[in-house]
Amino acid sequence: MVAVVLLVAGVITSPGGDAPGREARQEWSARIDAGNHAGLWLVGGAVVTAERNAVVARSPHVGAVLWQVPLAEPHCSSDGVRLVCVPSGRGADDGTITLIDSTGSSTSTRVPGAQLAGPLGGDLIVAGGTGRGERWLARLAPDGHQRWRSTLAEPSSAGTSPTFHELAVSERAIIWWFGENGSAYPEPGMVEPASGERMPTLSAAPYTPSLPLAFERTLMYLDADARASEDAPTIMLGGVADSIDEPWLWRWEVDETPIGVTDDAVISTISADRPSDVKNGDPWGYATIRTRAAEGSQAQESRTTYRSISCPCTWAGSALVAHGLRASDLDALQDGDVAFDVVLLDPEHASVAGRHPLAGATWPQPAMALAADDERAFLLTGGEVVALSMP
C-alpha cells in the first residue's frame, strides 16, 4: 500500500516560538586525545571513544576509565555489542582489523587492502581497495570465509579514485560514502547485505508526481533512524520511505530535512532562509520543527528560537537529540558571534524539550558525535566527552 501525504494539508502550527525547555544537567566530563577519526558509542553499557592512540571505555555514571585498547588512529564502527576498528595511523599494519568486545578483549584479523569495516551479526563487512583505484566490499564469516565480494570500482591505470570515508552496516543495507580530503561525497552507495548486489541510488530530488516511483527511491541514511536496526524504517530522499511493513509515500519541501523517525512518525526540520537569500534588510528567519504521522496527512510544527537545527542525531528515551545554532542576526553569523546548544526535541509535540549550551563552540558548526540511553545523552565535541542527564 502507498499512502500519499501532502504537506499543505493537516498541519497544525504553534502560535510562535518554542517553549524555553529545561536545561540538561551535566553529570561529568572527560578530556580525550581526539584523533582524525574520533567516534563515540555505547557498547555493553560503557561509553566508548576512538581516540588518537587507543579505544577507551568509560563508566556512563562517573566517566572513569574502565579499559582501553591501544590502536594507532582507529577508524571504528559498532553495533552496540562490539567494535570493529581499522587502525590508520603511522605504523599500522595494512589491512589489520581489530575486533573489541564489551569487556575490552580484542582479536585481530588481516584482510589485505581493508580500509573500513563494520559488524553484521557475527560477520564482518569490509570495505577496501588498492592504490590502483580498485574499490570493493566483502562479507566475511567468523571463520574468515568470504560469503561475497562486490567490486565497486575497477582497477585503473591512472590509479585515482576516492577512498572510503564512512561505512554504515545494518540488516537492511550496507551503505558507504566515498570521500576526499577529509570530506564525504553527498551521495552514498548501497548494496544488499545477503548477496552483495548493488542497490540503486539516485540523485536527490523533491517529490514530483510525474516521476515514476522507482526514480524516487533514493536513500537518505539517518543516524537517528530509530530503535533496533532490523526494525527501523529507512528514509529515502525524494519522498519515498520504506516502512517496517509496507512502502509509503510522502512529500516534503525543498528546505525541509528529515532528522529522525519512530515506528509511526517522521521528525523533520524546516530551515530558516539561507543567509544568501536574505537581502535588503529583510529579517533572517528561525528553524521550524515538524512531526508528521507516517501514514495520514496530520502534521504539527512549531517555530524555534534557533536559526538551524541539524544532525548528528540520536535518541535518548523518547527525546530526539540534535544541535541548534543561535545567532542574533546575519552580521553576528558572519562575525562568528554564534552559540550552539545540544537540543532535546519532543516529537509528540514538535517542540524543544531541553537544551545544553556547548561551551566554546565556534562557527562553522562543531564536529560532534552523540550516543544515548534512556537516562543520559553522551556528547563528544571539541576533544571532550560530556554526560548529560535527561531533563
Rank of each mutant, 00 (worst) to 15 (best):
M1T: 14
V2M: 12
L7C: 12
G16F: 04
G17P: 11
D18E: 13
S29Q: 13
R31Q: 13
R31A: 15
R31E: 14
A46L: 12
V48G: 00
V56K: 03
L71T: 04
A72L: 06
S88I: 06
D94H: 09
D94V: 13
G95W: 03
I97H: 03
I97S: 02
Q115M: 13
L116I: 11
L120I: 14
G121C: 15
R135G: 07
W136M: 02
L137H: 05
A138E: 11
R139A: 04
A141V: 07
A141E: 12
H145I: 12
E166L: 13
S170P: 03
A173N: 03
I175K: 04
I175P: 01
G179S: 01
G182H: 01
V191G: 00
V191F: 01
M199K: 08
A205R: 06
P206G: 12
M220F: 10
Y221H: 13
D225R: 03
A226W: 03
A232G: 08
A232F: 05
D242I: 15
S243K: 04
E246V: 14
W248G: 02
L249H: 12
L249D: 09
D255P: 02
E256Y: 08
I259A: 02
S268M: 09
T269N: 03
I270N: 02
T288N: 04
E295I: 10
A299W: 00
R303N: 06
A319S: 14
V321G: 00
V321N: 00
H323R: 14
V343E: 02
G354T: 05
P357V: 08
T362W: 04
A377V: 15
G383Y: 06
S389M: 08
S389W: 05
